[in-house]
Nucleic acid binder design. Structure first.
Length: 154
DNA sequence: CGTGCTGTACTGA
DNA sequence: TCAGTACAGCACG
C-alpha cells in the first residue's frame, strides 16, 4: 500500500480523496476530510478527472479504478450503479432489479449509504420512487450533483 | 392526497 | 440472532 491524498473541487463542494499508488485504485472520496491518509498531492490523474467533470466531461471517471466491494451484493450493486449514464437517474428498486435482487430496494439504500467513493460511484444518481430520496451528505448535495449533470426535474 | 404498516434483503454488533 | 436502513407498495381515512 502506497497511499497519498488530495482534494478537488466539485459542483457540490470540496472532495477529499485517497489514492493507492500500488494498485492504482481510488480508495475513498468524501465531502469531508475524515479518514485522510498519506501525504498530500496537488496534481494527479484524479485531480484532472475532477477538473474535467467540473468542465462538463461527465464521464471523466469512467477510467478510474476502485477496490472491490466487500460482499458480492455490494459488488453487483456498485457495478450496476456505475452503468447509470450521467444526467439520468434510477430508482433504488430499479437498481436492485438490475443488480439481480428484484426486491432489495432497501438493501440498495443501505449499500449507497455506505459508499466511500462519492461521484465516482454515483450514488447520487439513485433516487426514491416518490422523490429524490436521501443522501449521506444531505439532499442538497445530491441535488447539486444531479443539476450539474443535467438530470431533469431537480 | 397523506400517514402508517408491512414485506423485503442485507449489515454490523 | 436482532435491530437498523439513503425503499416500495398498499391499505386506510
Amino acid at each position: 500500500m502506497s497511499l497519498w491524498h488530495g482534494t478537488a473541487k466539485s459542483p457540490a463542494g470540496l472532495v477529499y480523496f485517497v489514492f493507492d499508488e500500488s494498485d492504482q485504485q481510488l480508495i475513498s472520496a468524501r465531502f469531508d476530510p475524515r479518514d485522510i491518509e498519506g501525504p498530500a498531492r496537488k496534481s494527479s490523474p484524479i485531480h484532472e478527472a475532477f477538473a474535467q467533470y467540473n468542465d462538463g466531461a461527465l464521464d471523466a471517471f469512467d477510467g478510474v479504478d476502485v477496490p472491490d466491494a466487500k460482499s458480492a451484493f455490494n459488488v453487483n450493486v456498485y457495478t450496476a450503479m456505475r452503468q447509470i449514464p450521467p444526467g439520468s437517474v434510477q430508482t433504488y428498486g430499479e437498481l436492485a432489479a438490475r443488480s439481480g435482487y428484484s426486491r432489495a430496494a432497501r438493501a440498495v439504500g443501505t449499500a449507497c449509504g455506505r459508499n466511500e467513493i462519492v461521484i465516482v460511484i454515483p450514488c447520487h444518481r439513485v433516487v426514491a420512487s416518490n422523490g429524490v430520496g436521501g443522501y449521506g451528505y444531505g439532499v442538497d448535495t445530491k441535488v447539486k450533483l444531479l443539476v450539474h449533470e443535467g438530470a431533469e426535474g431537480y
